[in-house]
Design a protein around this nucleic acid. Structure first.
Lengths: 249, 249
DNA sequence: CAAAATATTGCAAAATATTGCAAAAAATAT
DNA sequence: ATATTTTTTGCAATATTTTGCAATATTTTG
């Protein structure tokens, strides 16, 4: 096994579990603990992991982290991301929006997965570009300063030229009666189209945002096929969505 | 078996399995490990694979670090960026490439400047989006994993639809006789077009890269209008460029 | 504090890289 | 076609890197 390859595997393990132990990795990869330790030191010098006694921790390091602000509810978002992965399979065309949950999704993506991603979000694209198996296509347009996504007519045009199998939509507000809403009309325009053109729509949302709504409407709740939260699917909070016949993961 | 043919096979193997070993390829193709090693070195110089000890990995393994602390010759790049700012004025349409020097340029951009930026570089776009005065338009396309820029026909098409006043081009190698060169053909295709369509072309380069060249040619030295380095314009190192009648800042 | 776990250091064996060189193969000129 | 030049290839001698091990130091834990 090549050194770089081994380090890539280690890095993936760290990103998935947020921590690794020398002993585990040493067994898993069939090398001495010394070698693992040296690898972790190197990775930590490159700023990719945080070395601690006995192993290493994830830096929850995204290529681009949303300006300094630690990702809110990091653990929860990782758990959402893991569930979302199960919706994908090789060869799919996936449309993915921005937001920290989707960023987390891009980070823990299994390397062997081979899909084509379309996105208009700069941070998401940066992170997806790290993924060895998949191809990332950025949808160009005028960059919205706060959301860091492409907006405008050109985006809508490009979107109408593709037919994604699934759309992974990060969201600010979802409500079983009102549907999906947002507060930025530029973003809403884009999201509307993303939902229209996609075969299936999955909404990724932490439970705080359930049953909340903003000023501008994106779509009805029926336009959504999957709802993914960090909660167990049979949590009472999710009941209204079951009733609206969404598939709740 | 011809050399080209062998290298094509190697390249296929790399892209298929994401890694190759000297030992495997040597057996498989009935040549010595030395030959394989030399092939891999060449392929890596052309930017097609990533050479590592014992074999090679597919390019997608490479991770580019944009951490400020790790930027090579950070101070020098800031000084280049400051000179580059003098070329801009309000209302201009500016095409800007990737690279750490341009990233630094985007960071120190005076906030009151009002220009429209076109770029295909994800890191550059991220930084430009922070700038209050200007508008950033991202040129969409397939994201090249190591350079983190849009590549492919769509980029070329989009570029042909605009007429920038100036192109700020980061570079890997510039030579007064050979011109601009690079090692990644995907990047070269895009840069060629960027230079063609722009009214003026400014090359930003730290002095280390002066009089160096890579395998693949981007353009002649005469296609460049401005050369910006961290050196004083009358530094002897820059004499060849004065002779080629570039404006040296 | 003492036992256990983990780090550090130096070292040697194995694997891999580099360099220079000469023979073979390919390209070019005669 | 033949001779000459250039490129490619394999080999050997010599570096360099990587790895595991052992002895010793340090930190953690109860």
């Amino acid at each position: 096994m090549l050194k770089k390859e081994r380090q890539a595997l280690i890095l993936r393990e760290v990103n998935l579990h947020n921590k690794v132990l020398h002993t585990d990795l040493s067994q898993q990869l069939n090398v001495s603990e010394d070698t693992i330790r040296r690898d972790l030191v190197e990775l930590s010098e490159e700023g990719k992991v945080m070395k601690v006694r006995g192993g290493a921790l994830s830096k929850s390091f995204h290529v681009y982290s949303y300006k300094k602000s630690e990702i809110y509810k990091y653990e929860e978002k990782t758990s959402i991301a893991r569930k979302a992965v199960t919706l994908l399979s090789d060869g799919m065309l996936v449309l993915i929006s921005g937001g920290t949950t989707n960023l987390e999704f891009a980070r823990i993506l299994p390397p062997e997965l081979q899909v084509t991603f379309y996105t208009g979000s700069l941070p998401t694209a940066m992170q997806l570009a790290e993924h060895p198996g998949s191809e990332t296509i950025f949808i160009g347009g005028r960059i919205s300063k706060n959301a860091k996504i492409s907006t405008g007519g050109e985006v809508i045009n490009t979107l109408h030229g593709i037919r994604p199998d699934i759309c992974l939509m990060g969201t600010n507000s979802i409500d079983s009666r009102v549907g999906l809403t947002d507060s930025d009309w530029e973003v809403v325009d884009v999201k509307k189209t993303m939902i229209q053109i996609s075969e299936k729509v999955a909404v990724l949302s932490i439970s705080d945002k359930l049953q909340s709504s903003k000023k501008i409407k994106i779509c009805d709740i029926n336009d959504v096929d999957y709802l993914i939260t960090e909660l167990s699917p049979n949590d009472p909070l999710l009941a209204p969505y079951h009733e609206a016949s969404l598939k709740v993961l």
